[in-house]
Design a protein around this nucleic acid. Structure first.
Lengths: 339, 339
DNA sequence: TGCAGTGCGTCATATTGCGTCGTAATTGGT
DNA sequence: ACCAATTACGACGCAATATGACGCACTGCA
C-alpha cells in the first residue's frame, strides 16, 4: 500500500470512523496507532490529533471524558450522524421495517435504530411528502389475531444473539412447563422466531439424552453470558433443522396431500398456493380437488381444521382417519351437553 | 439567527447534506443559494464551492456529470457513507429487520437499504464477533406454514405508499375475483398487511355504493400515479377501521367468550392470552375454563376450530350453535364416503 | 516525592484555502 | 452566425489556518 498523504479532512474522517459508541471509548494514542497501522503514515504529531478531537467534538458531537490524565472519546448511545439526505425509497423502507418489527426487536436494538426511524420520518415531512397521517393509514394486522403477544424480555433475546455471535456459553434460569425453575449451562445452536414467540434451540451441560432442546424465550428468567466456549454441533443448520420438523413434526411419511374444497374457499389457494406443485381440479359436484406435495405437520392439520366443513381430507388415508377421529371427538363435545 | 462563520469542514458537510441521490442532481448555483439562505452568509465565492465539490468527489464519491456548461452533482443510487462505526446492537437490529422484512419490502426500498445491511454484516465480522454462521442459526418460521407467499409485485405497494404520501389519486388496472380486469381511479385511504397478503383500502371514482373497498395488492396489474388529489375521508384512521372489523367482521354482538380447553392445550394461553382480562379456572373434570372479552370474528372461529376436540365453545350460545353446525357438516363429509 | 505521560496554551513556520484573473467551452438571443 | 453571458477550471499571490515544537500544569505510579 502506498503511503498516501492524508489531508486534514481525510484524517479527521478516518478518526471519526474509529470512534466507538458509549460503552467503548478511545484515546488519542489508540487513534495514532490506528492511523499509523491502517493508513501507514508515521509523520503525525499527537498535538494534531488532539486538535482534531476538539474539532470533532464541536462539529460532530463526539463526547469527551477526562479520566485521570487521559481523555477518552466516544459517541453517546443513540447518536447518529447523517451526511446524506435520506431519499423517499429509503425512508419508506425504514418506516415499513419499523412497523413490521418494532414489537419483535430487543430494546437495545430499537434504541440504536431510533435515530434512523426519526430521520426517515423527517425525510418524509417536507413540502412534497405528507407523512402527517402515515400512522393512520398503514397497519400490520396479524391473522392469528386473538393472541396477545407473549411478554418476553427482548433483552434476553439480545443476550442469546450475543452469545451466538461471540461463540460463548451462557447460564440461564428457566421456568419449566410444570412451573419449577432450573439453571442451565447452555450451548446455543440457534434461534427460531414463530409469530410472537421465539425459541432457543440448544443443548445444555449435563443433558441426559442426546438431541436439541427447545426453550421458549419468554420463560427465561435470567441470562448471564459466560466466558467458556459452547459445545457446537458440527454443521448445524437451522434450516435443515426446521425442514426435518424441528418445531413442527411431520405426522406421516407420505407427502401427497389430496383435499376437496368448496369452491369459494379454494379460491385463495390460487394466490397463496400450498406448494409449488399444487394441482387444482374442478369436480362435477362443484367442489375443487387440490393436490400438493407437502410435509403433513401438526400445523397443517390445525390449518385445515380451521376451514371446518369447507374442506375434506382425502389422502393420505391415515390423515383422513385422523381428521375423522378428531371430528368425532368434537361431535361428542357439542352433542353431549346439549342433549 | 446569528451569521455564523462556517469553517471549511462545516461548509463542506452542509453541502454534502444537500446533495441528492441519482435521479435528482444539484448545481453549484443551487448550493450557493442554499448556503446563503439556510446559513445566511453571503461572503462565499463560487470558486470555493467548485473546489469543495472536487474534494467531495474525491473523498465521498460524489458523482459529477458535465452537461453542457454546468456540472451536476449527485450520489449514485445505493451509495452510502458511514462515518460512524456500527455498534453490535445496531448491527443486530439491522440483521433482524432484514430477516423479518426482506420478503415484504418493495425492491426499491430493499436496494436502498442494502448498504445498511451490508455494513451491519461487516460490523459483526471482526475478530470478536463471529457472524459467519448467522444464517445458519437464526430463522423466522411462520406458523401458518403451508401457504407459499402470494406473488405480489412489491413495486405496486411502493407506488401505493407514494400515492398516500404525496396525496395523489392513482389509476390502476385490477383483476376482480371473477377474473375480469377493470380500470379504477383510486382514492387510497390506507394499506393493511395481513400475513403475506396486503390490502389497499380505498374508494374509487364512479363507485356505486358508499363505503370502503378492499383491493388485494397482488391482483393489481398496473399502477399509474395521477396528478389529481384524492377524495379523502375526513378523520380516517386505519386502526378504527380494523377495530370496527374492516377485515375481520364480528360474527356476534356479544363479546363474552367462554371456552373449555383440555389442560395441556390451554397451557399456552397463559403465555399468549386471548385478551387482557382473560380468566382461567380449572374444572373438576381436569379441563380448564377460559373466559375473555373479545370481538368474536371469523378468524377466532377459524382459530378455535384448529384445536379440534381440544376445545369446546360454551358461550355465547349462538356461537356454540354455529360451531355445532360446522362440526355436523364435517361429520357428514367424513362419514358419508367412508361408509 | 520524583518521573513519565498526558492535555492544552502559545508561538513561529509551513501549508493550505481562498479570491481574483484569464482562458476555453457552451448557451441563448437577436 | 455572432456576441454577450455564464460556467468550469488552471494559475497566482495573499491571507488564514494547520502544524510541530516547546513549556506548563496536572495525574498516576513506583
Amino acid at each position: 500500500m502506498a503511503v498516501k498523504e492524508l489531508s486534514q479532512i481525510e484524517r479527521q474522517l478516518a478518526i471519526l470512523r474509529r470512534i466507538p459508541t458509549e460503552p467503548q471509548k478511545v484515546t488519542v494514542n489508540d487513534l495514532i496507532e490506528y492511523l499509523e497501522s491502517s493508513h501507514n503514515l508515521g509523520n503525525l504529531s499527537k498535538r494534531s490529533i488532539q486538535r482534531d478531537m476538539a474539532m470533532l467534538e464541536r462539529v460532530f458531537g463526539v463526547h469527551v471524558k477526562t479520566m485521570g490524565r487521559e481523555n477518552y472519546y466516544y459517541f453517546p448511545q443513540g447518536s447518529h450522524i447523517s451526511l446524506k439526505k435520506m431519499g423517499p425509497d429509503l425512508a419508506l423502507g425504514f418506516l415499513l421495517m419499523e412497523k413490521y418489527t418494532h414489537s419483535l426487536l430487543p430494546e437495545a436494538s430499537l434504541d440504536a435504530l431510533a435515530p434512523y426511524f426519526k430521520e426517515a420520518k423527517l425525510a418524509l415531512k417536507n413540502e412534497k411528502y405528507k407523512y402527517a397521517d402515515w400512522e393512520k393509514r398503514v397497519a400490520i394486522y396479524p391473522k392469528v389475531y386473538p393472541l396477545e403477544p407473549a411478554k418476553f424480555n427482548a433483552n434476553h433475546l439480545l443476550d442469546i444473539y450475543k452469545a451466538l455471535l461471540l461463540n460463548k456459553q451462557f447460564k440461564m434460569n428457566y421456568t419449566k412447563k410444570g412451573g419449577e425453575t432450573k439453571d442451565y449451562i447452555v450451548n446455543a445452536q440457534g434461534v427460531v422466531q414463530q409469530e410472537q414467540v421465539s425459541y432457543l434451540i440448544a443443548t445444555y451441560d449435563g443433558q441426559k439424552a442426546e438431541g436439541l432442546i427447545q426453550f421458549a424465550i419468554h420463560r427465561i428468567n435470567d441470562i448471564e453470558i459466560l466466558d467458556s466456549q459452547p459445545k457446537q454441533i458440527a454443521g448445524f443448520d437451522i434450516r435443515e433443522y426446521l425442514e426435518q420438523g424441528g418445531l413442527d413434526i411431520s405426522l406421516y411419511q407420505e407427502q401427497n396431500l389430496e383435499l376437496v374444497f368448496n369452491k369459494p374457499t379454494a379460491q385463495h389457494l390460487n394466490e397463496t398456493p400450498l406448494s409449488k406443485d399444487q394441482q387444482w381440479t374442478e369436480l362435477k359436484d362443484g367442489r375443487v380437488r387440490v393436490t400438493a406435495t407437502i410435509n403433513i405437520t401438526q400445523s397443517i392439520k390445525w390449518w385445515l381444521l380451521g376451514f371446518g366443513d369447507q374442506v375434506e381430507v382425502i389422502k393420505p388415508k391415515a390423515f383422513r382417519d385422523d381428521m375423522k377421529k378428531t371430528v368425532q371427538g368434537m361431535m361428542e363435545l357439542y352433542c353431549r351437553n346439549s342433549k
